Amino acid sequence: MRVLIKANMDTDRGNEAIRTGKMPEIVQGALERIKPEAAYFGPLDGCRSMLLVVDIPDSSQIVPTLDPLFSDLGARLEVTPIMNLDDLKKGLSQLQ
């Protein structure tokens, strides 16, 4: 299932990662483990944030997929199921 992950980083942990120069390493490591289809970065809800589009084929993969965001960044997460255009067309065709 394709999901949109909104990750708001903990401000104190983010500040510390920036002070120590580890923020690029932490973000790159998380992205390598998560393997998003797309990744965007910016301020959301007053926090340093990431928006990631991720395909999670099995619900048991939610734990290892999201854990780097919790453990490395102290992030608050929102996970929302999403569809691309092909998924939407397929779903709509089942309504007829």
Rank of each mutant, 00 (worst) to 15 (best):
residue 1 M to R: 12
residue 2 R to V: 05
residue 3 V to T: 10
residue 4 L to N: 07
residue 5 I to K: 00
residue 7 A to E: 00
residue 8 N to R: 05
residue 9 M to R: 05
residue 9 M to C: 10
residue 9 M to K: 00
residue 10 D to P: 02
residue 10 D to W: 02
residue 11 T to R: 13
residue 12 D to E: 13
residue 12 D to F: 04
residue 12 D to K: 14
residue 13 R to K: 15
residue 15 N to H: 09
residue 15 N to L: 06
residue 15 N to Q: 12
residue 16 E to M: 07
residue 16 E to R: 15
residue 16 E to F: 03
residue 16 E to T: 15
residue 16 E to P: 03
residue 17 A to I: 04
residue 18 I to P: 10
residue 18 I to V: 13
residue 18 I to D: 05
residue 22 K to A: 13
residue 23 M to G: 06
residue 24 P to Y: 00
residue 26 I to F: 02
residue 26 I to T: 10
residue 27 V to I: 15
residue 27 V to S: 06
residue 28 Q to S: 13
residue 28 Q to L: 10
residue 29 G to T: 08
residue 29 G to W: 04
residue 30 A to E: 00
residue 31 L to R: 02
residue 31 L to V: 06
residue 31 L to S: 05
residue 31 L to E: 04
residue 32 E to P: 09
residue 32 E to S: 14
residue 33 R to N: 09
residue 34 I to E: 00
residue 34 I to H: 01
residue 35 K to S: 09
residue 36 P to Y: 04
residue 38 A to D: 11
residue 38 A to T: 14
residue 38 A to E: 12
residue 39 A to W: 07
residue 39 A to Q: 06
residue 40 Y to H: 15
residue 41 F to R: 15
residue 41 F to T: 15
residue 41 F to Q: 15
residue 41 F to L: 06
residue 42 G to D: 07
residue 42 G to E: 06
residue 43 P to Q: 13
residue 43 P to F: 07
residue 43 P to R: 13
residue 44 L to A: 15
residue 44 L to R: 14
residue 45 D to F: 08
residue 45 D to K: 14
residue 46 G to C: 07
residue 46 G to H: 08
residue 47 C to E: 09
residue 47 C to N: 15
residue 48 R to I: 06
residue 48 R to C: 11
residue 49 S to Q: 06
residue 49 S to E: 02
residue 51 L to F: 13
residue 51 L to V: 13
residue 52 L to P: 01
residue 53 V to F: 04
residue 53 V to L: 09
residue 53 V to N: 01
residue 53 V to G: 01
residue 54 V to G: 00
residue 55 D to G: 04
residue 55 D to Q: 08
residue 56 I to K: 11
residue 56 I to P: 02
residue 57 P to N: 03
residue 57 P to Y: 00
residue 58 D to F: 01
residue 60 S to T: 12
residue 61 Q to D: 11
residue 62 I to R: 13
residue 63 V to N: 04
residue 63 V to I: 10
residue 63 V to S: 07
residue 64 P to Y: 07
residue 64 P to H: 10
residue 66 L to N: 03
residue 67 D to G: 02
residue 68 P to W: 00
residue 68 P to T: 05
residue 69 L to M: 02
residue 70 F to S: 08
residue 70 F to P: 02
residue 71 S to G: 04
residue 71 S to W: 02
residue 72 D to G: 05
residue 72 D to V: 01
residue 74 G to I: 05
residue 75 A to M: 06
residue 75 A to H: 01
residue 75 A to S: 08
residue 76 R to L: 03
residue 76 R to C: 03
residue 76 R to P: 01
residue 77 L to A: 08
residue 79 V to W: 02
residue 79 V to G: 06
residue 80 T to E: 03
residue 80 T to A: 04
residue 81 P to S: 12
residue 81 P to Q: 07
residue 83 M to S: 14
residue 83 M to Y: 12
residue 84 N to E: 10
residue 84 N to M: 06
residue 84 N to D: 15
residue 85 L to P: 05
residue 86 D to W: 05
residue 87 D to I: 10
residue 87 D to F: 04
residue 87 D to H: 12
residue 88 L to V: 13
residue 89 K to G: 09
residue 90 K to M: 06
residue 90 K to R: 14
residue 92 L to Y: 09
residue 93 S to H: 09
residue 93 S to A: 09
residue 93 S to E: 11
residue 94 Q to D: 05
residue 95 L to P: 06
residue 95 L to V: 08
